[in-house]
Nucleic acid binder design. Structure first.
Lengths: 341, 341
DNA sequence: GTGAAAGCGCTAACAG
DNA sequence: CTGTTAGCGCTTTCAC
């Protein structure tokens, strides 16, 4: 039932070498007739080469590892899609591992993937700057095994691998500029968690834009959130009390919370108050008042990371790349021109 | 740098057999001292067994294939998470493939996965009943390679593999019963696409509930949608005109559309009209008026599918299983007691 | 207690 | 144009 290269060789009355040569389209002069015969037989027998055996000798598994914090997070599932689609196109397979925001798991997953002889790794790490012990072990493993690595979204501490990420600062800038251009001057900001680099960058972009418009940076208009819906609600309440006419929420979840709260306070969104989010999660469009937000080209980032790792595999000495994608503004219904009251 | 069993053997001054024995904890009498020495050396050298080589001899790769239509769909990413978490627990890895709703890709993906010697397959197929040619090839491949298979959510046409799915009919029933119990009698239904089994089942559940309450099934109160937001909008408009006091939308996307439309028509949701969805996608909670809906335990389904495939791998003769998960009602803010006007 | 040797399915020199 | 042979890294009988 299961047939190997041997069975075909026997059936065709040739050596396994010849079969291997033919089936791999090697530039080798095999008589057209033998060639066709071998192909015919391999089809009849439904021959499927054993990639495990092949990998053992070629040292190439055509398999990539993908380590992410959580596949059920829309950001990462979209990323995974981009990676996988590109991989499929290039005859690679993806083994994915959830690390569950647990830095230690990044390490154990890496060990297992190395055991599996992956050709390259794409990782959005869960390692924190404080996990020194794991970080060192992680980097040593990569080094010892000469494993090509591409970091996505978050860089690996203490080491500069090729990286694909988003320019979060530019995103924060874009969002705030949009509000400024609409005439708003008293603009509140609900930030993300302070230990997140990307959240901090978004916040920096907000400051950048304000200073470009010579708007003094009033720290009392900054509410420190945690990317969860509740901090959107609480932040919004506080900021409205302080009289802001617009709010930049550093992610869409918090923007949703802000909308909810603003309505509760009888504000009409897009009139009494403008709200802009960040991420462009799918829900933004579905809302009965679609959310203005900053879009991250996540799919493209995944695709790109995959392209990059494949290049790295084929040209190990290619120079280190640091690709930053640019976010874009998606204007929808929650932001509008400032009207003095 | 990369070290094999041989290196350890040489270093320890023993044969590779002994090393293999020790490192695999084989019930073999190896002197405690040699044993400890081998373990120490393998640690020092950071030995990582080559699973490719191991697989070649054991015929087990500890790898599972996961074929799904689209990882970026929240349903499937949640499913994938359940599968992967359980796999990790059992020392299996997951190779995932998107088929992009393309039945033919199910086939090519399967071929590649077989080449990779996966131990088992979990699949939510994109094959339609009409793809006879591919279906037959698909089923033949599985059979010839004696590959353990678990179908999730959607069954593979023409063949009864072990299956993990949701009782969609019960879900439709639950949703409609909820509305009936609230006193509604003129209940509209926005269905899913007619070629989707699960959509049809949900609709059947709606009919079941109506008949239980002796409410005649008025076909004019059924709007045939396609699971997209727009059919929710259009369906809602039509149904409101027909004077329904409640709507069962067969998925949450359409329910969102319905809410949008109802508001546009100046109806107060939960008062003038009750709306219930299906799926419990994450957005339901975030909405400023959280959606009442039917929850599918997707994560558990993934976990279960993984458990099932592992059982199947270990006990190939275990009897065919057909696991149906039960949906649950999540009461939130969009449904309420019927008030006569 | 430990080792020699065969072999998993395949590729790749090297011969002929 | 085709076959012989060695070997990838590991497990597993069987012998010592």
């Amino acid at each position: 039932m299961k047939c190997t290269i041997k069975d075909i060789a026997k059936e065709a009355g040739v050596s396994i070498t010849t079969v291997s040569l033919v089936l791999n389209n090697k530039p080798c002069r095999v008589a057209v007739q033998t060639r066709e015969n071998i192909i015919k037989i391999s089809k009849r027998l439904h021959y499927k080469p054993n990639s495990t055996a092949k990998a053992l000798v070629t040292k190439k598994t055509q398999t990539l590892g993908l380590i992410i914090p959580d596949i059920s997070n829309p950001f990462f599932s979209e990323l995974a899609k981009g990676v996988e689609m590109e991989a499929q196109k290039n005859n690679y397979h993806i083994i994915f591992c959830n690390s569950n925001q647990n830095g230690k798991k990044d390490l154990t997953n890496l060990e297992l993937l190395i055991s599996k002889q992956i050709d390259g790794l794409i990782i959005s790490t869960s390692l924190n700057n404080s996990d020194t012990k794991y970080i060192n072990q992680f980097n040593r493993l990569i080094f010892e095994n000469e494993l090509p690595v591409v970091a996505v979204d978050r860089k690996i501490p203490n080491k500069n691998y090729d990286t694909v990420s988003l320019d979060h600062r530019e995103g924060g800038f874009l969002a705030t500029m949009h509000l400024l251009e609409l005439g708003h001057r008293k603009i509140g900001c609900i930030t993300g968690p302070t230990d997140s680099d990307s959240a901090n960058e978004r916040y920096k972009g907000y400051i950048d834009a304000l200073s470009l418009y010579d708007v003094p940076h009033d720290k009392s208009l900054v509410y420190h959130g945690d990317y969860q819906i509740n901090s959107g609600i609480e932040g919004c309440e506080e900021l409205i009390k302080k009289g802001v006419s617009a709010i930049f929420a550093c992610n869409d979840m918090m923007a949703c919370g802000a909308i909810r709260q603003a309505r509760l306070m009888d504000k009409i969104i897009g009139k009494d108050i403008s709200i802009i989010g960040f991420d462009n999660i799918s829900i933004c469009e579905i809302l009965d008042q679609p959310l203005t937000t900053i879009h991250q080209p996540v799919y493209e980032m995944g695709k790109n990371a995959c392209e990059l790792i494949i290049t790295l595999i084929n040209e190990p000495r290619s120079k280190n790349q640091l690709i930053k994608f640019l976010p874009t503004l998606i204007k929808r219904a929650t932001t509008n021109t400032y009207i003095e009251d």
